[in-house]
Amino acid sequence: MKNNFMNHLFKKLRHGTISVSLITVTCLFINKEAISQAEKDSAKLSATMTVSYKASNGSRSIKVNLKRKVEKKFIAVDNLKTPVSLYFKSVKEHNPADGTGLVGKLYLGKDGEGVFEIPDDINKLISGLHKYTFIAKFDADPIYEDAEEEISIADSKITLSYLGEDSIKTATATLYEWKDSAYVPVAGAELKLGIKRTFSIFPIGESGAVTDSSGKVSADLPLDMPGTFDRKITIVAKIDEHESFGNVEVSKEVPWSVLPEPIPEIGRALWATGDNAPYVLVFSSLSIIAVIWGTIFYLISLLIKIRKIGRDKSS
């Protein structure tokens, strides 16, 4: 009884101490929080934003990249808690406060990069404009300073034609820009031609070829390049990081006769799945198992027989 009482008292005491210490800790914590918040505001890391534009077969996208400098080297920022917002400037004056002109918000990936695919409705707007500006904004991040970057693009167009004879297969691309009220050829621009592969574009023709006075570049295709299994190959014409056009590319699928090596069927093999085990292995192992386990079951039946004899005798 006495013991119980003491225990109770002790508990109460302990409880009291705990609450007091809790309060102190909370105070400390709040203080600390406040201080560190202030510290953070003054010592945010600066980040550099780059924005690039790409039009591929008419669908547009904006790529945003965020980097920071560490010991004279740029490294990608990662683990961002805040998304990057992209605004289209020309719809009406954009307003981050109420979201006017907002194209979208995107959390950058581990490599500090993100791609905004421009949605169809904005695409429609753009097509009539021939000149357009996007603004990417990154703000209110707890770790990084705010960053903002603008990109302006002038409209351009590439056409691609292909002439496929037996021994010569030529691709020709023409670059146009919008001037006054019509598309006119652009001379002296670097226009690349290539063959589309899964991970890359295989360049064809001279490297560094520029458009002639009629805005054209031509190249012969390598005759031994394998196409797809349905006898097609895709040729690509593109300009990279042009100061007023950005990245623009068009592609075209053309008939082709060189097929890739046929893919062999995965037959029965030691490394194949269990269903595709070699017949010899399956049959030999099954027969061994059948013989041995057959005998084992026979032996177990003998045990049952012994038991039966025992029962019969005793009854």
Binding site: S59, S61, P83, F88, V91, H94, G99, T100, G101, L102, V103, G104, K105, L106, Y107, L108, G109, K110, D111, G114, F116, E117, P119, D121, I122
Partner: peptide, 29 residues
């Protein structure tokens, strides 16, 4: 090219958004 169509057309916030991870390690709404 369907993702992220949070356009300024006024339907902002009308639909519930979820965060998903794209296969190349990006978070998107």
């Amino acid at each position: 090219g369907v993702a992220l169509n949070k356009v300024a057309s006024g339907d902002e916030g009308a639909e519930e958004k979820v965060k998903v991870l794209t296969a190349d390690g990006r978070l998107a709404e």
